[in-house]
């Protein structure tokens, strides 16, 4: 086994207040820290933890295809691990949620028998549960990326809430490093949702706060007005359940007979 080590951590949505103590300790003790975070606030904080901080953001400038940019990120991190260094890779939010290179790094490290682990971080979904007062334990929760939702026939369960992610890139099939959402992406999304939900069903556009002291955005409108809303890169859609789950009486009766 290589003596190099990889720990993948997340900063949460707001740095430093969301970053975990476990992540901080790994960053402080690393020989080399790669990071890709969206704001100067987090960069300044991470520099205070470890001077050997290397940004991966320029990978986006070196290629036009996102998949190639991710491969560049993986190659850079792996090069340092191969030097038998203790390497930390930092991603925004939860490092394993909507992050391809973190999972690629874990898979490659495991194949090469490199000591590696991914630590949990606070994701946008975690913030949504807190800000909107949603408990996914009550009636479950479905969650899909917006373009994936459009492109696939999914068995949507209207007795459970539905969360649609990344409205800001809905319909982007380019996989380019320059984001190109479809001009009618939100209209397509509204049309598809109206196959499952009534037009007057109240849905909520949600955006987690990304700087301290800032408010989250929670704007509720009838589904029929969804495509009129102003969408940002971090916009998410929350759709409450419209029906109650049908009790499985056959199972309950069988279970009772076994008691």
């Amino acid at each position: 086994m290589s003596k190099g080590r990889l720990v993948i951590v997340g900063t949460g949505m707001i740095t430093p207040k969301h970053i975990t103590q476990e992540a901080i300790n790994h960053i402080k003790n690393a020989d080399c820290v790669f990071y890709i975070t969206p704001d100067a606030l987090s960069t300044g904080y991470l520099k205070s933890l470890n001077k050997n901080l290397i940004s991966l953001t320029d990978c986006y400038q070196q290629t036009t295809h996102r998949r190639d940019a991710y491969q560049l990120m993986v190659d850079r991190v792996m090069q340092e691990i191969e030097k038998e260094l203790r390497v930390v890779a930092i991603f925004y939010g939860h490092p394993g949620v909507f992050v391809t290179p973190s999972h690629d790094l874990m898979k490659l490290s495991q194949e090469r028998k490199i000591d590696c682990q991914m630590l949990p971080g606070i994701s946008a979904e975690d913030c949504l549960f807190s800000d909107l007062g949603i408990d996914p334990g009550s009636v479950g929760c479905q969650s899909y990326e917006a373009t994936f939702f459009l492109l696939n026939k999914l068995a949507i369960n209207t007795s459970s809430p539905l969360i649609i992610w990344q409205l800001g890139v809905v319909g982007d099939l380019s996989f380019s490093t320059q984001i190109k959402p479809a001009s009618d992406g939100m209209a397509m999304l509204q049309n598809k949702l109206e196959l499952f939900y009534p037009s007057d069903h109240c849905v909520t556009l949600y955006e987690a706060a990304t700087l301290p002291g800032f408010r989250h955005r929670a704007e509720s409108v009838p589904l029929s007005q969804l495509s009129e809303l102003s969408i940002n890169d971090i916009s998410t859609l929350y759709i409450p359940a419209t029906t109650s789950p049908e009790p499985d009486n056959d199972f309950v009766n069988q279970w009772r007979q076994l008691q």
């Binding site: 890709i36 975070t37 969206p38 704001d39 100067a40 606030l41 960069t43 300044g44 940004s55 953001t57 986006y60 996102r66 991710y70 991603f91 925004y92 909507f98 992050v99 391809t100 290179p101 973190s102 990326e145 990344q166 800001g168 890139v169 982007d172 490093t177 984001i179 990304t210 700087l211 890169d233 971090i234």
Partner: peptide, 21 residues
């Protein structure tokens, strides 16, 4: 705010980073 801070040289990266899929 990001533009005003100009700390990291990562200006404008928010748009890109949230789409790592």
């Amino acid at each position: 705010i990001e533009a005003a801070l100009q700390l990291s040289g990562d200006k404008g990266s928010i748009q890109k980073i949230i789409k790592l899929t």
